[in-house]
Design a protein around this nucleic acid. Sequence first.
DNA 1: TTCAATAATAGTAATCGTTACTATTATTAT
DNA 2: ATAATAATAGTAACGATTACTATTATTGAA
Lengths: 133, 133
Amino acid sequence: MKRTSAQKEMIKNALEKLDHPTAAELYDEIRKTYPQISLGTVYRNLNSMADGGEILRISFPDIPDRFDPNIHEHCHVACIKCGKVFDTVPLPPDLINLINEKTQEITGVKITEQILFMRGICRECANLEQNKD
Amino acid sequence: MKRTSAQKEMIKNALEKLDHPTAAELYDEIRKTYPQISLGTVYRNLNSMADGGEILRISFPDIPDRFDPNIHEHCHVACIKCGKVFDTVPLPPDLINLINEKTQEITGVKITEQILFMRGICRECANLEQNKD
DNA sequence: TTCAATAATAGTAATCGTTACTATTATTAT
DNA sequence: ATAATAATAGTAACGATTACTATTATTGAA
């Protein structure tokens, strides 16, 4: 059966403290106070928490996975310059259903997951872009 | 300036022949008739074609990128069992605009790309699942 | 029709996020 | 208390992709 561990608590705390962190960012944060933490431990706990629905895994192409302790339904946008991830509105359910049904009809694939990925340029990076000489 | 190459033509032909192939699948296909093709050459040509808008890159989390010579607007579903990718309907433009505006307002991120990822179980894999003893 | 400049290539090494492995440590039900 | 066994630390391996380098091939101009 499942057991508790100090490391898992540290990971949960760091998840709350940081903003959509990657596994490596959590690892670095925790190492500040507990240098012997293993990157594998961070990954193992993140995976089990994401599988158990305790946290959200945010997977974008090309950038490392990020994790979100806020599990209530919402979408994410990633900045293509700095890689930062932002929360935004959830997908409208009626639209989800529409695409879902059409897709099932056309392809025969029974949909289990729908995720809208958005990419763009965040305010900070847009400013940097404008002010470069 | 850009030059033509026999290898690029082979890659284009293999793209038409195979169904949403990965770079490795194209490599294997081309090697049947041209064993000295390099995997790097396949990747380089796919990247330049995708960057130039000649073909579509389909990036799903966890599975290798797939490529599509059909560049007209549409979405994809991936089977979580076999990894096969299917074409489906495009995103409704009014939905795109709605989420686009809301997201820009909330996050300040100027959206450049919106992709709906869908995953599910294809007919073939559903049948295999049902008939296993 | 050469031919020099330089894209594009083949082959291989390196990268990076992530998972797998293994011996050790820590938790927990009895 | 203690035996069973999760969970760990540390390290090796993996798979997709990119980077590097010497060689080959294309092409615009002489």
